[in-house]
């Protein structure tokens, strides 16, 4: 399966470039003018990334996840979310690499085919690093008032947790 997905990026690039060679006069100049715009984009998003990632690292190292996990245990019980998945639920919207590291440890200790391992895997695959995505996209166009974006995204993340537990219990329970 991972052999099939390894085809995607090279194939997409070749299709784009070859079609460009057939349909336009100078592919490479189209490429470079697009790439120049890309460089400017990175330059404009760097400051907000520095600010946000420092805050995320602070939150991760402060033990906030442990405290919130403890506080949320009763809710996890009601919703049939395995207890050891809860820290991951809280970390997922904040840190992509952190969540991946935590998933790795969780699958190693709970077992790849355990209910906890499966719920954690489904959760990680079906959600995104909400805070990172939101900040990146809005700061790239200097939008400061994001209205209800974060609330709606967090509602979706929370539902994602519940639905992961439901589907795994349904298929493998």
């Amino acid at each position: 399966m991972s052999y099939i997905t390894a085809w995607f990026a090279p194939l997409v690039i070749c299709v784009i470039v070859v079609t460009g060679m057939i349909r336009t006069d100078n592919v490479f100049s189209h490429f470079t003018s697009g790439a120049t715009m890309g460089l400017k984009t990175v330059y404009s998003i760097a400051p907000s990334l520095v600010g946000l990632i420092v805050a995320v690292q602070m939150l991760k190292s402060s033990g906030a996840v442990d405290i919130l996990t403890y506080a949320l245990t009763p809710i996890a019980d009601i919703l049939h979310i395995p207890k050891d998945v809860m820290p991951l639920v809280l970390l997922r919207p904040v840190s992509g690499s952190g969540a991946l590291a935590m998933l790795d440890r969780l699958v190693a200790t709970a077992g790849a085919d355990s209910i906890s391992g499966r719920v954690a895997s489904v959760l990680c695959a079906s959600s995104e690093t909400t805070f990172y995505t939101t900040t990146l996209y809005f700061s790239s166009v200097r939008i400061k008032r994001i209205r209800h974006t974060l609330i709606a995204a967090l509602i979706a993340d929370f539902s994602c947790t519940i639905i992961s537990a439901i589907t795994v219990n349904l298929f493998f329970g």
Binding site: V15, I16, T19, G20, T24, G34, M37, G38
Partner: peptide
Amino acid sequence: TIPLWSGLMNIAESSGI
């Protein structure tokens, strides 16, 4: 990654993909 894919996006746009 961003300059690479914005460059490719630019090609994909002008070629009609």
